[in-house]
Nucleic acid binder design. Structure first.
Length: 431
RNA sequence: GGAGAGGUGGCAGAGUGGUCGAAUGCAACGGUUUGCUAAACCGUCGUACGGUUAAUAAACUGUACCGAGGGUUCGAAUCCCUCCCUCUCCGCCA
């Protein structure tokens, strides 16, 4: 969400953002509603003033039948006008949720991730003198992954991790958590069931509603599907971590706030039927260590933090001895709320390509406005904060890269040094 | 799942139909006093959306907001209805 005043003053830029990001929104119509809304509000306010005057007179004085009659008339007019105003305002507020953040100047314009721009490639890709196996085969042979049973039990895109697969999964997550703790992040295990406001606040709603699971007590669902209430399973800890600060006014001296959440993440992936249907790459539930930073509304400071977060992810991947590249996401790939987004794509030999494993975003005040997170600045004013978020590690997707990059010709997998203490082995040997 | 209690300003906590945006206390901020700190005293002390002047700092002004929405009334924090949420006890359960 953007400040309506900003939208009015920067119509062109907002319209361009809508176009570049491919958002379905008629800005002209929204602005018309805004004008209408303000006019109606003024009229309503005037009538209310009249009503209050009459009430005041009646209170302080004697009974006056004429005044009471007058009050009844005003009330009638007011009821009608308020109805009208409410309709306009509701529609206006609904549409305002669709207004995107303005992309940064260096964000490439484009419709899909094909327009993303590679900034740098880091690490050395393994040079196999044999035909590398994919993680599915490796996982099966090492008895650390069972997709058939996963699908049997969970359905499409289900999986079981087993044995060292479990240790690798938990190990890489634990490694990330420890690293974030050492970098000064406050650690949290947040709820993964969240109310609607947190999804709207972060920007998942109303854009990406199909990707979010609603959790409804099974009995309720059967009784009355329409009225069933539920909570939402988060697609990332970011939702809960920002919800934590919703409606709060923070103290400037506590900023920046750096938190790191570890949670299970749920995404229906209904929009991606034919993409990555095999293996651990695109799955409906996974675990993620996610960082959220809340800082002052200072563009430069946010940019700096954005780079620092990227640095942390790069450091993680270097520790894990994985080759990767950094891309800057284009307008069509970055999401409505984002000002600037870096993705890190890690080398996955079986795809013979890079796969996205990390994402680092600067949303400026877009989420803060929706979530109503402010801080009291030194001059005593309340301002909206800026928010950023970044992936420390998401697993099991990262296991795709770990397994495939570290395999040998016999199908054994070398465990990256930093994970050995969790897995308890240097090499996973084929049975 | 059963029963009950409750949601008021940063916090605590009054207020049961009429200038109530809301007493009081605490916290915060500014100041006076003081060798410093503390104490004491004085003052300030919500947010949002409009309007006017004026220009981007501000001044004045209107309206709204006491969980949300609706209703009764000339007038609602206060009465009525619906919903949401929180808490307590019991039951069930990892």
């Amino acid at each position: 969400m953007l400040d309506i005043k900003f939208i009015r003053d920067n119509k062109k830029a907002v319209d361009k953002a809508i176009l570049d990001k491919g958002i379905k929104l008629n800005l002209e119509y929204l602005l018309e509603l805004d004008t209408k809304r303000r006019t109606l509000k003024q009229e309503v306010d005037e009538l209310r003033q009249k009503r209050n005057d009459i009430a005041g007179k009646l209170k302080s004085g004697e009974k006056d039948e004429k005044l009471i009659e007058n009050g009844r008339e005003v009330k009638k007019l007011l009821t009608e006008l308020e109805e009208k105003f409410k309709n306009v305002r509701d529609e206006y507020e609904r549409l305002l949720l669709y207004v995107p953040q303005i992309p940064s100047d260096d964000t490439p314009v484009g419709k899909s991730d094909k327009a993303n721009k590679v900034l740098e490639e880091i690490g050395t890709k393994p040079n196999f003198d044999f035909n590398p196996r994919d993680h599915i085969e490796l996982g099966k042979d090492l008895n650390i992954l069972d997709l058939e049973r996963g699908v049997k039990v969970s359905g499409f895109r289900g999986y079981f991790l087993k044995n060292e697969g479990v240790m690798l999964h938990l190990g890489v997550l634990m490694y990330a958590v420890e690293k974030m703790r050492d970098k000064g992040f406050e650690l949290m295990v947040p709820p993964t069931l969240t109310k609607d406001f947190a999804l709207y606040g972060t920007g998942w709603f109303p854009f990406d509603m199909d990707n979010i699971y609603k959790a409804i007590p099974a009995g309720k669902l059967r009784l009355d599907e329409e009225k069933s209430e539920g909570t939402n399973l988060v697609g990332t800890a970011e939702v809960s971590l920002l919800g934590y600060y919703a409606d709060e006014i923070l103290d400037e001296k506590d900023l920046p706030i750096k938190v790191c959440g570890f949670s299970q993440c749920y995404r229906s992936e209904v929009g991606s039927y034919r993409k990555d249907t095999k293996g651990l790459y695109r799955i409906r539930e996974f675990a993620k260590v996610e960082q959220v930073v809340i800082c002052r509304d200072d563009d430069g400071e946010a940019d700096k933090i954005h780079e620092e977060l990227l640095g942390l992810s790069k450091e993680m991947l270097n520790d894990l001895e994985l080759p990767f590249r950094v891309v800057i996401a284009c307008t069509g790939d970055m999401g409505a709320g984002k000002h600037k987004m870096y993705d890190i794509e890690t080398w996955m030999p079986a795809r013979n390509g890079y796969g996205e494993t990390h994402s680092d975003s600067n949303l400026r005040d877009w989420q803060a406005r929706r979530m109503n997170i402010k801080y009291k600045s030194k001059d005593g004013k309340n301002r909206y904060v800026y928010t950023l978020n970044n992936t420390a590690i998401a697993s099991p997707r990262i296991l795709v890269a770990i397994l495939e990059n570290n395999q040998d010709k016999d199908g054994n997998v070398h465990v990256p040094k930093v994970l050995q203490k969790y897995v308890g082995k240097e090499v996973l040997k084929k049975a």
